[in-house]
């Protein structure tokens, strides 16, 4: 170090940002022109950073020593040595299982909708097409269909045994158009889906039993069902 004690003091103040604008400008001119002063400035800058590292390393050692003197940190069972949860295998496995169960559940639900109740299944398997479809299910290009669009939809749903979907449509026909056939089909649909009390209520209703043909059908179905 070739600079005087006074110049070293000036360089220190410069590095710490404590010079006035005038003093700073004057020193910068000297640094540009005096090689020894400039060399001391460069060295001082590096040495000060070296001192900083040394202090910080000492503080880190002190904290490590402190850590050794206190009870250790309890490991976090859930997260220890594992990536964030959304990146973990568990997360993806749970996701796949949930999606699989949702698809399976939806499929079961869909299948069950058109399934007959356990009690009515044998009866419907044997006799439904022959005895429970009372409207014409044959379509012809040259014969006009006498059914309305709403009736066709509701009756067709009934005919293909989609009872859950058919019931609200048949109910509409009964309520709005007073369609006795729809009301009868609704009773049969309730029977098929296991709602026996509602089925019996409809099939023994005056609207049905006042029609001899429907009464005979309803009586025979209920009698057979009760066997």
């Amino acid at each position: 170090m070739k600079s005087s004690q006074e110049d070293i003091g000036l360089l220190e103040a410069y590095l710490k940002g404590r010079l006035s604008p005038e003093e700073k400008s004057a020193l910068e001119v000297r640094l540009a022109n005096e090689a020894d002063l400039n060399s001391d400035y460069s060295d001082l800058k590096v040495l000060l950073e070296g001192m900083r590292i040394s202090v910080l390393e000492n503080k880190l050692d002190m904290l490590k020593g402190l850590e050794n003197s206190i009870p250790p940190v309890a490991p976090n069972e859930n997260k220890n040595d594992s990536p964030p949860f959304f990146l973990s295998k568990k997360f993806w496995m749970a996701g796949i299982i949930i999606i699989f169960l949702a698809i399976f559940g939806w499929w079961i639900f869909k299948e069950n909708k058109s399934h007959l109740s356990e009690e009515s299944a044998p009866l419907f398997a044997e006799k439904f097409d022959r005895e429970f479809i009372l409207h014409s299910i044959e379509r012809s290009a040259d014969v006009l269909d006498s059914l309305t669009v709403e009736q066709k939809i509701a009756y067709d749903l009934y005919a293909i045994q989609e009872f859950e979907d058919a019931i609200p449509k048949l109910n509409q026909l009964w309520k709005i158009q007073n369609d006795t056939m729809a009301y009868f089909y609704m009773g049969i649909s309730y029977l098929a889906t296991g709602n026996t009390s509602e089925a019996e209520k409809i099939l023994s209703d005056n609207a049905i039993i006042s029609n001899a043909y429907l009464k005979q059908k309803a009586d025979s179905i209920l009698a057979e069902y009760k066997k």
């Binding site: 590096v46 040495l47 070296g50 001192m51 590292i53």
Partner: peptide, 10 residues
């Protein structure tokens, strides 16, 4: 330079 400064200090 910094590692030399650190070593010099030690």
């Amino acid at each position: 330079q910094l590692s030399t400064a650190l070593m010099s200090l030690e």
